[in-house]
Design a protein around this nucleic acid. Structure first.
Length: 275
DNA sequence: TTGGGTGTTGAGTA
DNA sequence: ATACTCAACACCCA
């Protein structure tokens, strides 16, 4: 569920709770979440005794920086972090616990168990999967018009599929791709390499604006997303097309329709977004 | 009741 | 290279 704005909100709220906290013990109830190292005991060994120094973000990945290692965490559809006193009862679907030396603990909760974690020595995290192939997010300096033009010009896939491709631009998911393409007035089925320069400029501009505004609103809560202090996002009030099927387009009044594209539910106004 | 859909992504196939 | 299906898993709703 979380896309860039939700991950960024989680990053900011979680920082307040875990910086300078030291890991004393780790409990893993669902080992499949730990992708690297493949041995869970080694995963624990690399982190125990270390202190959280910072939390950063790359696209939809959280990067927990400790003294000597970095924990990469991808929330996929339903991953959540929260901090509790160790005496509080565990919620259902809590799969990994990082116990601190101060009696608190960081809990990873994930109803669908799709989330992933990787641990690498500090500085090595960008040299291998999963960050190696990740493109820049719209807030990074590398996300320039020439870069974006070059990437889009090299694929005949739909612009929807291209924007969901995290190696081209990181951080957009199904909600923000649909919102971006609506605001840019581009039909999601249009082939990426057939877009005009002005369409590419509009997509770039509205992707950045939409993500920025969603960060300012604390993300989008559709069903289950809450940040690490339990707060819901507010950006769902600002959605133009996502989840708005059979509602009137806020721009022209025609009905928003939902189609299937790139394997995903896709929301469009067929008047504002011509093929 | 049950099957299809869900804010993600990777693998396998043609 | 791309598109399509399936997989991981649990829950919700028509």
């Amino acid at each position: 569920m979380p896309e860039l704005p939700e991950v960024e909100t989680i990053r900011r709220t979680l920082k307040r709770f875990i910086l300078d906290k030291t890991i004393e013990e780790i409990i893993v109830y669902w080992p499949n979440i730990v992708k690297y190292p493949d041995d869970v005991e080694e995963f624990k060994h690399m982190l125990i005794g270390q202190t959280f120094r910072d939390i950063k973000r790359s696209g939809k990945f959280l990067r927990f920086e400790l003294d000597h290692h970095v924990l990469l965490s991808h929330l996929r559809m339903e991953g959540k972090y929260s901090v509790h006193d160790q005496t509080e009862p565990l919620a259902k679907h809590t799969h990994i616990i990082f116990k601190f030396t101060n009696g608190e603990e960081l809990r990873y909760h994930d109803v669908r168990k799709f989330g992933t974690m990787h641990v690498f020595p500090k500085g090595k995290e960008f040299e291998q999967k999963p960050l190696l192939q990740l493109g820049p997010d719209p807030f990074e300096r590398e996300f320039t018009l020439p870069y974006f033009q070059e990437k889009l010009g090299r694929t005949s896939r739909s612009i929807k599929a291209a924007l969901l491709d995290q190696t081209i631009v990181a951080g957009l998911g199904n909600i923000y791709v649909d919102e971006t393409l609506f605001k840019a007035g581009v039909h999601p089925a249009k082939k990426a390499n057939e877009l005009t320069v002005s369409e590419i400029k509009a997509i770039k501009k509205f992707a950045t604006i939409t993500l920025q505004e969603a960060v300012e609103q604390g993300g989008t809560t559709i069903r289950s997303y809450v940040s690490s202090d339990g707060e819901m996002g507010m950006f769902q009030q600002e959605l133009f097309v996502y989840g708005q099927e059979n509602e009137a387009c806020k721009n022209c009044g025609d009905l928003i329709v939902k189609i299937k594209l790139a394997g995903r539910g896709t929301h469009i106004c067929t008047t504002c977004q011509k093929e």
